[in-house]
Computed example of a mutant assay.
Amino acid sequence: MDSSRDFSGIWIPLVTPFLDGAVDHAGLRRLVTRLAGSGVAGLVLNGSTGEAAALSEAEQLAVLDTACGTLPVIAGISGITPQAVAARLDALRGRDLAGVLLTPPYYVRPSQAGIAEHFRRAADASPAPLLLYDIPARTGVRIETATMLGLAAHPNIAAVKDCSGDLDHAQAVINDGRLQVLAGDDHRLFTTLCQGGVGAICASAHLRPDLFVALHRAVATNDLRTAAALWRRLWPLTKALFAEPNPAPLKAALALLDGLGPDLRAPMTAASPEALASVLAAVEALR
C-alpha cells in the first residue's frame, strides 16, 4: 500500500468554532493542537460536522489554511454540476492535502451513470486522492455497489466514507480490496472495523480520541476481546452525540470541556439541556 494513499485509522471530522458570528480561528488552532497529540490519523475539514453548508467558499479555504500543517488533512467538498466541482477542486491546489472527500450530486438525484461520471471527472482533476462519500440520507442517492466497484478502477480514487447503512454493500467493497472503507456513521464503527474496514471518520472521537484510537489498534492487532470491551464503553457516547442533529450536542459538550464556542449557524439550533446532560454523563463514564 502506497503510504500516501493509506487512510487507515481514526479521522476526526472537525467542528468549525464560531465567535461573534465569524469563524474562531484561534479556537480552531487550539482544538487542532489538542488532537495532534492523541494518535488520530488526521482531520477531515469542511464536512457536515464542520457545518460546511453554512460556510462561504472563502471561509472553507480559511479553515483549511488554519488547520493544515499539524496533522494530515482531508478536505470535504460538494457540488452539483461538473463546473462547480472543478472550481472547488481548483481552489484546493497548492494546499498540502492527504485527500479530498466528495459527495454525489445532491438534490438532483442523478442516475448511477451520472454519479459515476461525476466522480470520474472529479478524480481526473483532483490534486489529491479522492474519497467517495456515500451518504444517501443527505444526498438523496446511493452509490450502488456496482458503481463503486467500477470507480475503484480509477487510479486517483482511493477510499470510501461509508454511510450507506448497508452491511452487504460495505462487505462487498471491502472484499474487493481496491478501495479502503472507513466507517462514516459513528455507531457502525466497530462493525465496519470487524468487517475489514481500515478506520473511521468519527465525530465522537473529538471527546475521547485516545479510546477510539485504542479501539482501532485493538481490532487491527486482532485483540477483539479488548476491542469489544472498548466499544461497549464508547457506544453510549456515540448514541448520545447523535440523539439530536450533529454537531449541536458535540459543540455544546466541547464548550464545557474544551472552552470552545458553542455557537452554530442557522438553520442548526443549540442542543437541548437533556441532550447535553446525556453526552456529559457518557463522557464521565469514560473517565
Rank of each mutant, 00 (worst) to 15 (best):
S3L: 11
S8C: 10
S8T: 13
I10A: 04
I10S: 05
I10Y: 10
P13A: 08
P13F: 06
P13M: 07
P17Y: 07
P17I: 06
F18D: 03
F18K: 01
D24G: 00
H25E: 13
H25P: 00
T33H: 13
S38A: 15
A41R: 15
G42A: 09
L45W: 01
N46D: 03
A52Y: 02
A54R: 02
L55N: 07
L55C: 07
S56K: 07
E59V: 08
Q60F: 00
D65N: 07
A67W: 04
A67Q: 08
C68G: 06
T70P: 02
G79Y: 08
G79D: 04
I80P: 05
T81D: 11
P82E: 03
P82W: 06
Q83A: 15
L89R: 06
L89H: 03
G94W: 08
R95F: 09
L97A: 07
A98N: 06
L101A: 04
Y106Q: 13
R109W: 01
S111F: 14
Q112L: 00
A123Q: 03
L131R: 04
L131H: 05
P136E: 08
G140K: 13
V141F: 13
V141G: 04
R142F: 06
T147Y: 04
M148C: 08
G150T: 09
L151P: 14
L151N: 01
L151C: 07
P155A: 10
N156W: 00
A158R: 06
K161L: 05
K161I: 01
D166A: 11
D166Y: 15
L167M: 15
D168G: 15
A172I: 06
G177Y: 03
R178S: 11
Q180R: 11
L182S: 01
D185P: 01
D185T: 10
D185V: 10
D186A: 04
R188K: 10
L189D: 10
T191E: 14
Q195R: 14
Q195M: 15
A200C: 07
I201L: 12
I201G: 06
C202L: 12
P209A: 06
F212P: 02
A214W: 12
V219F: 03
V219D: 09
D223H: 07
R225L: 13
T226I: 06
R233F: 02
P236C: 12
P245K: 05
N246T: 14
N246G: 07
P247G: 09
A248Q: 02
P249E: 08
P249T: 05
A253D: 06
A253R: 08
L260Y: 00
L260G: 01
P262T: 04
L264G: 00
L264C: 01
P267E: 02
M268I: 02
T269C: 04
A271T: 05
S272Y: 11
P273H: 10
P273M: 05
A277E: 10
A281K: 07
A282D: 00
